[in-house]
Amino acid sequence: MFRRWMLLLFVPFLASTGVAQAAEPVVPRLPAPTGPHAVGVTELHLVDSVRPDPGSPTRTREVMVSVFYPAGEVGGYPEAPQMTRKAAEWFATTDTVILHPELSSTKDKVGWAATRTHAHTGAPARPGRRPVVLYSPGFGDPRTLGTGVAEELASRGFVVVTMDHPGETSLVEFPGGRVRTILELNGRNPGTDPAAFRAMITTRLADTRLVLDRLEKLAEGENPDAEHRPLPKNLGRALEPHRIGMYGHSAGGTTAAEAMHEDPRIDAAVNLEGFLDYLPEQPGQAGELLPIVRAGTGRPLLLWGTDGYRTERYDRAWSAMLARSPERTCRRQLGDATHWVFTDFGAVAPQLEAAGLMTGAQRKSLIGAISPAKSVPAVRDGVVAFFTRTLRR
Rank of each mutant, 00 (worst) to 15 (best):
M321N: 03
N234V: 12
P280G: 07
E312A: 15
S250P: 08
H249T: 09
Y247F: 15
R294H: 01
R331H: 09
Q282P: 00
G296N: 07
G252R: 05
H339M: 02
H228A: 13
G287P: 04
G308I: 01
E262G: 13
G252N: 03
N271S: 07
A286R: 10
W304E: 08
A320L: 02
K233H: 11
M321H: 03
E227G: 10
E273N: 11
R328W: 12
E262D: 11
R237T: 13
R316Y: 09
G284V: 01
R237V: 10
C330Q: 15
P280S: 04
Y247H: 12
P326V: 01
W340Y: 13
L235M: 05
D344A: 00
M246Q: 06
L272M: 08
H228K: 07
A226E: 05
D263R: 04
R328I: 04
R229K: 09
M260G: 10
M246R: 01
H228D: 06
R313T: 15
D267M: 09
R310C: 08
G284Q: 06
K233E: 15
G308D: 02
W340N: 15
L239N: 12
E262Q: 15
G335H: 13
D263C: 08
S325L: 06
L276M: 12
V293F: 13
G298L: 04
C330E: 05
E273G: 04
G298D: 13
W304C: 04
V293W: 07
T255I: 01
L235C: 01
E262M: 07
K233P: 02
H261N: 11
T343Q: 09
P283W: 09
Q285F: 00
P300G: 14
R310V: 02
